[in-house]
C-alpha cells in the first residue's frame, strides 16, 4: 500500500484495535465466568418436548411452541424491516435489460430449479422432524428467488414471481400467524397454545404430527421467503442514485 497515513489516523486505528481487543477479552472472561456456574437442573425441554408438543425436533419445539411468541416477534421484526425498506426506497422498477448469463447457464439452471426448490420445501415441511424449519427454509426460498433474478434477468423473474404476490403473501402470512395465535385465547389456554387447544397431536415422527407446529412452520416459511425476497427486489429495483 502506497498511501501514507497521517499520525492521527494511525493513533485512532491503534485505539480502535486496543478497544476491540479489551472488549473481546472482557467478554470472553464474562462468558467463562457465566458458563462456569454450576448448571441448574435441566428445564425439561429435552425430556418432555416430544410429549408436550409432538415435535421430535427439540429446537423447533422450542421455537414454535414453548417460545412461539418470540418467533412471532422476530417474524414481525422482519416484516417491519421489509416495510421500512419499502418506505425509504421507491417501488422497484426494472427497465429493459439483456440477460446477464449465457444461454447454457440459463438452460442448465432452468432444469435445476425444480430440484433446488425441493430442499427448502423439505426443510419447511419437515421442520418438526429434522433440522431446520420455517425460517431456514424460508430464507432458502428467498435465495432461490434471488437466483432466478440473477440468472434469468429481472424482467422474466418479475413476470414469473410478481412483486405483488410476494407482498400479499407476506401480509397474509403475517396476519394468519397472529390469528392462529388467537385460537389459544378462544379456547382459554393462552396465546399461541398448541396441543392444549385440542388440536390432534398425531404420532410423533410422522409428517402430520406436532399439532399446529407444521402449520406455523409453513406460515413462517411463506412470510420469511416473501419478505426477504421482496427486500432484495426493492433494493435491486431501486435506480442507482447519482450524486
Amino acid at each position: 500500500m502506497n498511501q501514507s497515513y497521517d499520525t492521527s489516523k494511525k493513533i485512532r486505528h491503534l485505539l480502535a484495535g486496543i478497544f476491540t481487543l479489551s472488549l473481546g477479552a472482557s467478554l470472553i472472561w464474562l462468558i467463562l465466568e457465566a458458563t462456569g456456574m454450576p448448571l441448574t437442573p435441566d428445564l425439561g425441554y429435552v425430556m418432555n418436548s416430544v410429549g408436550d408438543t409432538g415435535s421430535i425436533n427439540v429446537v423447533t419445539a422450542i421455537l414454535m411452541d414453548y417460545r412461539g411468541f418470540d418467533t412471532l416477534g422476530e417474524a414481525s421484526v422482519i416484516f417491519t424491516s421489509v416495510a421500512v425498506t419499502a418506505a425509504i426506497l421507491a417501488e422497484p422498477v426494472f427497465t429493459l435489460e439483456r440477460p446477464i448469463l449465457s444461454i447454457i447457464t440459463r438452460r442448465a439452471i432452468a432444469y435445476l430449479v425444480p430440484v433446488f426448490f425441493m430442499f427448502p420445501l423439505y426443510v419447511i415441511t419437515h421442520g418438526h422432524l429434522s433440522p431446520g424449519g420455517g425460517f431456514q427454509g424460508g430464507v432458502s426460498l428467498a435465495v432461490l428467488v434471488i437466483l432466478t433474478h440473477v440468472v434469468f434477468g429481472h424482467n422474466l423473474a418479475m413476470k414469473k414471481i410478481p412483486f405483488s404476490l410476494l407482498t400479499m403473501g407476506e401480509y397474509w402470512a403475517a396476519l394468519s400467524f397472529g390469528i392462529l395465535g388467537l385460537l389459544g385465547i378462544f379456547t382459554g389456554v393462552g396465546f399461541l397454545a398448541n396441543l392444549a387447544t385440542g388440536v390432534p397431536r398425531g404420532i410423533p415422527g410422522q409428517l402430520l404430527s406436532g399439532g399446529l407446529i407444521p402449520v406455523l412452520n409453513l406460515i413462517v416459511g411463506i412470510k420469511v421467503a416473501a419478505g426477504l425476497s421482496s427486500l432484495y427486489i426493492t433494493l435491486e429495483g431501486n435506480p442507482r442514485r447519482k450524486k
Binding site: P131, G132, Q136, V139, S140, I146, L231, Y232, L235, R240
Partner: peptide, 25 residues
C-alpha cells in the same frame, strides 16, 4: 444443526446477495 443451517443460508447466501446488491448500487 439448526443454527448451522440458518447461518449457512443467511450468512453465506442471502446476506452476500444483499451486500453485493448494496455495493453495486
Amino acid at each position: 444443526v439448526d443454527v448451522a443451517m440458518a447461518e449457512a443460508v443467511i450468512g453465506a447466501g442471502f446476506l452476500t446477495a444483499l451486500f453485493v446488491t448494496a455495493a453495486d448500487k
